[in-house]
Nucleic acid binder design. Structure first.
Lengths: 346, 346
DNA sequence: TCGAGTGATGAGAACGATCTCACATTTTTA
DNA sequence: TAAAAATGTGAGATCGTTCTCATCACTCGA
């Protein structure tokens, strides 16, 4: 606390410049001076002042992560992927939650830019309002978009194969014999939901099945919203045979609704959720899911960002990481005990 | 990018000092100068350089959060509590994961101090190796410990009522008629586990029951470790009637082990877990848990830290937030269908 | 009419590092 | 042996703010 390079230089009996040379390891320094400076630094417990360093170097060794909600296990895991990747290069991570609100997102980004983060990883909240992100890209500020894509050029985007994943999910349900399949997601402001909806539509189209408007439900990114929409969906005069829940919160919402409404899964309703969670194979029935490489999403985004920060000027690209279907009981994959389950839920 | 207060001053036709006075809002400034500066700042899109500000003010408006693993939903939720609280005061949060390793913890703290964070919220990894934290406290650096306590004076600690919570959990099992109760946690290096063990012991002692060494299992803070210990525990010649899982990962470990080993809950094994998760009431059977005010933990820690940063010199205290037992089926609370469940698991 | 007080301003010194120069001194080369 | 190159060092500018001074113009009361 408070010991500067000047103090070290003074104790070592050299100039500040020489002390700096030793500590930063550049230029010519005599072995004698080197030892004296090291000893002085050790003795005083000298710790370089990062802020002062940033002041002159222009880099803060800090990157910003802007996501909807760090409490969401999906983003938390992604954050870990980012953090683990950058920590080795000496970077730290500032995390901001936007509540999927473009206004909050804008101010979060603004604050991070003022703090001179070296780069930003953003899961953009809106497909429409992203002028603040466009500005960053225009100014060649190091940015990587993650989990979601935007209709802009000149920026790396790391996402999963949403269309294919959703397609696989719905195709899986179709193969199991379900025809009346509902789609449940949060807002279409978020690109991944649009893509997953696209996959849903394609799978139905492939079978020549129509899209039923009343089977398409969207809410906001909370368990409660998922629950509400699920209840509404399942209370309709015509109830779907299956639901494709397009994210983790929606999956929970459906499960809760089904439980409250005494609807047996998969007996009375099949379910496939997008995003794997560690308890999906602990519930009864186990829940079929589309697993995403969440940690890798963060990892790859971080690697790419570090390259951009280092000055890599190669053409930005869209990277798609693969999803994987994990068939379980909720889609009737092992429906041996369907009867008992119906009993049990009652 | 790159427009400084000098540029603003130049455009406004005043000195840097006057521009600074307008922008920071202190001292005497004529209305005319004020308008000119505002207009110039607006026109140039001036954004103050936080690093330069920190350089002179000595505050970075950043706080550090040092936890075992940000991917753990427990810490993620706590982080959100912290973040939401400090964001209103203009603070940002740097998050570091230590993997519950004192070495990593030390270097994380070191890095954050170099970055001149205004304060630290730490969930200490070890009850023994915390000299690096002691140093901070000695130097009067604003620190708040969270979730865990240390045997040191002069620092605020925010934790939950671990002893009481564990006591409630085990007492609940005893009341349900279970006698052979095992204790499963991660390392005793972590204070909360020691406290929960204390609660466990007290509840047994109250009933005059002995502590069985082979029923006490500890591992590391991962689901896999919990699983391994649970399997080992349940494979013993004498299997316990109930398990008290002292944290969220252990709860998952036990559930997975029970499932793999075809042990019916609560028919053949009762379970109470410490820490509530949103899916515990979705599984079958539903899982009895000790709920902790996780978000509030972060909130209170952040509030306290902000006060310390603001110069509050009142005596540091240990704050205990209350836990709450949520009785569910896994402890035989509604054991009407125990028979069927046994059937089902087979 | 003169000092005291108030309003308004700018010059310049911090903050703690990095890094370019200029200037020694030593060693190498022609 | 002189010139060139290599080695070692320190003075001082710089980054973009904040903030203390000193200065000056003006008003007011005695």
């Amino acid at each position: 606390m408070g010991v500067t390079i000047n103090d070290v230089a003074a104790l070592a009996g050299v100039s500040r410049a020489t002390a700096a040379r030793v500590l930063a390891g550049y230029g010519y320094v005599s072995e004698e001076a080197r030892q004296k400076v090291y000893e002085a630094a050790r003795q005083l417990g000298y710790r370089p002042h990062s802020i002062a360093q940033s002041m002159v170097t222009g880099r803060t060794k800090t990157i910003g992560l802007v996501v909807g909600d760090i409490e969401n296990p999906f983003f938390a895991k992604m954050a870990r992927g980012v953090s683990d990747t950058i920590i080795h290069e000496g970077y730290n991570l500032i995390v901001c939650s936007t509540n999927e609100n473009p206004i909050d997102e804008r101010s979060a980004i603004d604050g991070l830019c003022r703090k001179k983060v070296d780069g930003l990883i953003i899961a953009p909240a809106s497909r429409r309002e992203h002028s603040h992100i466009d500005e960053l890209i225009e100014h060649k500020f190091p940015v990587v978009l993650v989990d979601r894509v935007l209709d802009v050029a000149g920026v790396d985007m790391i996402a999963v194969t949403n269309v294919e994943g959703a397609f696989d999910a719905v195709k899986h349900l179709l193969e199991r014999g379900y025809r009346e399949i509902a789609f449940l997601s949060d807002s279409f402001e978020i690109s991944s939901n649009v893509e997953r909806f696209e996959g849903y539509k394609r799978a139905l189209a492939e079978k020549g099945l129509p899209i039923r408007e009343d089977y398409i439900r969207t809410g906001s990114y909370t368990v409660e919203a998922g629950y509400r929409e699920a209840v509404s969906l399942l209370s309709g005069t015509v109830r779907p045979e299956a639901v494709f829940a397009a994210n983790n919160f929606m999956t929970i919402g459906v499960l809760r609704a089904a439980k409250d409404m005494h609807i047996a899964i998969p007996g009375q309703l099949a379910l496939v959720g997008f995003d794997e969670m560690d308890w999906l194979e602990l519930v009864s029935p186990t829940i079929t899911a589309i697993a995403q490489p969440v940690y890798e999403l963060g990892q790859v985004a971080a690697q790419r960002l570090l390259r951009r920060i280092a000055g890599d000027m190669t053409r930005p690209e869209v990277i798609r990481l693969s999803t994987r279907l994990i068939p379980r009981e909720s889609s009737g994959v092992n429906p041996v005990r369907t009867e008992e389950e119906i009993d049990e839920v009652r």
